[in-house]
Simulated scan of single mutants.
Amino acid sequence: MADTETLDDLVRRVDPDRWLASRFIGDAAARADVVALYGLNYELARVAGGVSNALMGEIRLTWWREAMEEIAAGKTPRKHPNVEALAAARFDPNALALLAEARLADLDEGPLRDEAAVLAYVDATAGALAVLAARRLDAGADPHAVKGAARAWGLSGLWRLKQSGRSRLPEAWTRADLAQKVEDQLKAARGEVRGLPVAAFPAVAPAALARAYMAGREMGDLEKKARLTFATATGRL
């Protein structure tokens, strides 16, 4: 993060889809908190690709976990823009620490072994992130209402990770296989999100882009904005 770059600027650069969805959050304080959450997700997700061995990755993830645990204990937050933003945000720091813990799985060699392992990983990462964002936007948001949407988005993210050369998917899975699994999760999500408060919908809105990503489509910002606007306006993915 450059000295002159704000946290919002960072998330816009490194996680543009979630950042675009956050523009539909009307409350400025809530939007800032969710952006800080997405900043944490970026910091955790990039660890595995930025270290030469698992031990170094574990050290970095432990730094973030302990930073969140210190916030939970009421200690002065560490001097890091994202840590300080999360210390001021309305999240349970212990839940944030669990996000760091879940990313230890990124340090394992080889792909996830089967569908159950893939879904468990997605639920602990993209799923937990969506739950935290949804509950920050509306404290009454039901975690089950974001499950399918978060899974669809997380699975499509694993496909994009594979395209970058860092696959965690079972070796036998083809794009067609994964596209069907994403479609199944989106089908489940259509019913689930009906129970999601309108204010919390931006937490799951990125899933509206999952189908296009699985089709191998390159979307510009205008198309992404249109898809996200339609999803948010209609409550449909």
Rank of each mutant, 00 (worst) to 15 (best):
G195H: 13
I59H: 10
A21T: 06
R166T: 14
R194A: 09
I59N: 10
M214N: 07
G195M: 05
F24H: 15
D142S: 14
K181S: 01
K187D: 15
T229Q: 15
P16Y: 11
L228I: 00
N94L: 14
L237W: 00
R31W: 02
G57S: 08
A105S: 13
A72S: 09
A145Q: 07
A152Q: 11
G195F: 04
K225M: 06
E70R: 13
F201Q: 15
R23D: 05
G195D: 14
Q163M: 10
Y121I: 04
F201Y: 15
L104Y: 11
V14E: 10
M56P: 06
L237V: 14
A85Q: 07
L169P: 03
P93K: 02
R160K: 11
V34K: 00
T6L: 01
E66P: 00
L40A: 03
E115G: 12
D114G: 05
E69A: 11
L37W: 00
L169W: 02
N94R: 14
G157P: 04
R103E: 04
E70C: 02
L20E: 05
P111M: 03
V204N: 02
Q180W: 06
G110Y: 01
M214V: 04
V34P: 02
R31D: 04
G26T: 09
M1T: 11
W173V: 03
E115T: 13
P77W: 10
R194C: 02
D184K: 10
L40P: 02
L132K: 08
A116I: 10
A73C: 06
L107N: 02
V182Y: 06
A89T: 06
A212G: 09
H144V: 12
P143G: 10
P202V: 08
P16W: 12
A205I: 14
A212M: 13
W19A: 15
Y38S: 08
I25G: 03
M56V: 12
